[in-house]
Write a protein that binds this DNA or RNA. Sequence first.
RNA 1: GUGCCUGUAGCUCAGCUGGAUAGAGCAACGGACUUCUAAUCCGUAGGUCGGGGGUUCGAAUCCCUCCAGGCACGCCA
Length: 569
Amino acid sequence: MITNQVNNIVELIQQQIKDIVEKSIKVAEQKGELPQIEIPEIVIEKPREQQYGEFSTNVAMQITKQAKQPPRKIAEIIIGNAATEGTYVEKIDCAGPGFINFYLNNQWLYDSLKLITEMKEQYGEITIGKGTKVMVEFVSANPTGPLHMGNARGGALGDCIASVLEKAGYDVTREFYVNDAGNQIQKFGISLEARYIQQLKGEDAILFPEDGYQGEDIIEHAKAYIAEYGDALLLKESEERRSILAQYALPKNIERIRDGLQQYGISYDVWFSEKSLYDSKEVERTISELKEKGYTVESEDAIWLNGEKLGLEKNEVLVRNNGFPTYMAADIAYHRDKFVGRKFDWVINLWGADHHGHVGRMKAAMIPFGIEPDKLQVVLFQLVRLYRNGEIARMSKRTGKSISLTDLLDEVGKDAARFFFNMKASGSHLDFDLDLAVKQSNENPVFYVQYAHARICSMLAKLEEEGIPMPEVSKVDLSLLKEKEELELIKKLAELPEEIRISASTLEPSRLTRYVMDVAGGFHSFYSACSVKNAEEELRMARIELAMCTKTVIRNVLSILKISSPERM
RNA sequence: GUGCCUGUAGCUCAGCUGGAUAGAGCAACGGACUUCUAAUCCGUAGGUCGGGGGUUCGAAUCCCUCCAGGCACGCCA
């Protein structure tokens, strides 16, 4: 049944079932048992209850009106005409109000194990992306200070979304947009200047701007500059002084951000500079194009994006009355470049939920350039609350400052951080329990999963030590695996490609985190119910094969999440 | 005030393109280590799916309304 084309057995079976149903309906039409039916999209689902088989469909209920017969009757007719030869389907019956339930023979499970053994680290890879060029832009933190918890969640989410899309066959580019131009860089310079003067001439020498960056890191930059270059800037014009200080500190901050993300397991394909959009006149060009196409209005000495024409609630300023473009203008130019300049077919942005107001505007702003707005997709994630000792934690234990990504990594480590941020759907609020993340106990799901992997490794090592030969899949009789725990575990393993498919299409890698917890649980149950070492030789071989496949699946999922798979714990 | 997100077991969350008796982990309680790692396993208990209305053969899921929490409504980004 396995061919090189098949990499998702669950999908294959669902297709088989759809074919069975469609053909059966056609046959029934010919026999006159059913009138001509416009067959709807056949939905195959997994029944909650084991007793209802592996898959079920509700077509009989969907076509009740067309068939002019009660659903159970229709189901009986479909079952009566179903041809299951050459498929994994063993039995079909009808239950409840008219569900058609499909029971499979175990061969699909054994074939899945063979598939895992053949594909190894590639198991789980599918081709639904068909090489589509997709960009995932995430974190894109302001380089005016350290990375915070929002960046940490966005980083874990964005990176894992990118990985999942790669597994699903997309051509993925990870990008960081560096906001190295515009207002906040001005503010950065003003803040640095104030700290610089305060360092040299005392706290009261200059009033620190109310909307300046308050962080300690600004003071540290000022001190570092003075240590390196002294007080010569005091003699310069303010504007030049600010610019020099900003240009001094900015690269340092970007470097720190890069290092922090590297520690976190994230590396980007592209670091895209906002400033480059000004330097290349791309912002200007974008604004004139909007103007030419009639999407702008001018009033109060400013140039506005015509919101009404784009179905928006209000107009948005593109060029201020002082002649400087807004962030919005630069962002439109940036996204135009993603599609028009760099030819991405699909662009995914990860933004904190506080930016949700910006989503509709940006998508609409693509229309003037002939870009389908839905090609720009924004994944919003809710913000993070840290808990320590059962209370909201705002400050770092070590530094006393607000908790940065680096602090988090120091405190809980990369594995726990990435696991926890990917445990919940992006849209749900996240309470991050710092105590739990480092707890080495069964309360901590990271350890639960990693322990399953370590347990397999150690078991296999022990068997090898005792001189027990490792199996060759072609010689193993997998059909010996028929204990409940064995079958449950294999079923889980067989679902990986389907889990990847769903995670990719919903952009929810959290699904995989929960999946790998299930796999680990399945293994632990198998482990305590079925002895490998003490099984009769043939069975032992099959069980070793199952354990090795489990190891492969856990590794593959953890590697998507960029979490380590320890061999011993 | 307007818009968006969230509300499911004691806690943290799945399920939400409508389907069969609403699921999982943790916590609680009771069991299992002379046996391949007990960082584990097995079992028990736990629910007005925020409230109320509606649509439907059927609603946690769709519509309306109210309540609670978060966020956004800048010539900030």
